[in-house]
C-alpha cells in the first residue's frame, strides 16, 4: 500500500478518473472484464472542499471559496479498498472511480486494467488539452508599439 511507486500510480489514475467524463470511463470499461464486485464502506456522498489560493499567486494562503465534491469508499471481493474524491455531484461516477481504484491496486489484474482503461483515458484528456492549447495558440498576438504616439 505504502510503496512510493503504487502511490504515484494511484495519484495518476485518481487524477485521470476525476477529470474524465463518466460516459468515457464506462465506454472503456465495456471493453474489459467486469470489475470485481464491491460493497460500499462510505458514500457516495456529496460535500464541499474549501479551495485555497495564495496572495499574489505565491504568498500566504487564503480561502478562495468552496466547490462541491463527491466521495466514495468501497471494499471489493479481493479484499482491496478503493477511494474516490471527485469534483461535482456525480455519485455513480464517484462509486465507479472508487471501485476502479480498488481494482487497479490488484498486483495481478491491476496493470492490465491500467493499460486498457486508464491509459486511453489519459490520451483522450491529453488530446483535449492539446486542442485547447491550439485554440489558445491561434489567438497569440504580437503587439507593436507606436513609438511616436506621444512624442
Amino acid at each position: 500500500m505504502s510503496n512510493p511507486d503504487l502511490i504515484s500510480r494511484r495519484q495518476r489514475w485518481m487524477a485521470i478518473l476525476a477529470r474524465a467524463e463518466r460516459p468515457l470511463i464506462e465506454a472503456r470499461l465495456a471493453t474489459v472484464d467486469p470489475l470485481p464486485s464491491h460493497r460500499r464502506l462510505r458514500g457516495p456522498e456529496t460535500g464541499l472542499v474549501m479551495v485555497q489560493g495564495r496572495a499574489g499567486g505565491n504568498g500566504a494562503p487564503f480561502n478562495l471559496g468552496e466547490m462541491t465534491v463527491t466521495r466514495c469508499t468501497v471494499h471489493n471481493e479481493h479484499g482491496l479498498t478503493g477511494h474516490a474524491y471527485i469534483a461535482g455531484r456525480d455519485a455513480p461516477k464517484a462509486e465507479l472511480a472508487a471501485a476502479l481504484d480498488a481494482a487497479l491496486q490488484d498486483p495481478d489484474a491491476g496493470p492490465r486494467l491500467e493499460r486498457t482503461v486508464i491509459d486511453p483515458l489519459a490520451d483522450a484528456l491529453a488530446a483535449a488539452d492539446d486542442r485547447l492549447r491550439a485554440e489558445a495558440e491561434a489567438t497569440r498576438v504580437d503587439f507593436f508599439t507606436l513609438a511616436t504616439m506621444r512624442s
Binding site: N63, L64, V69, T139
Partner: peptide, 19 residues
C-alpha cells in the same frame, strides 16, 4: 453540505491557459 477538506493552495503558475 458538510465540508470534507481544504485544498492545497492552487498553483496558478501551472494553469492550463486559455487567455
Amino acid at each position: 453540505l458538510p465540508r470534507f477538506a481544504s485544498s492545497l493552495p492552487v498553483e496558478t503558475a501551472a494553469m492550463v491557459i486559455r487567455r
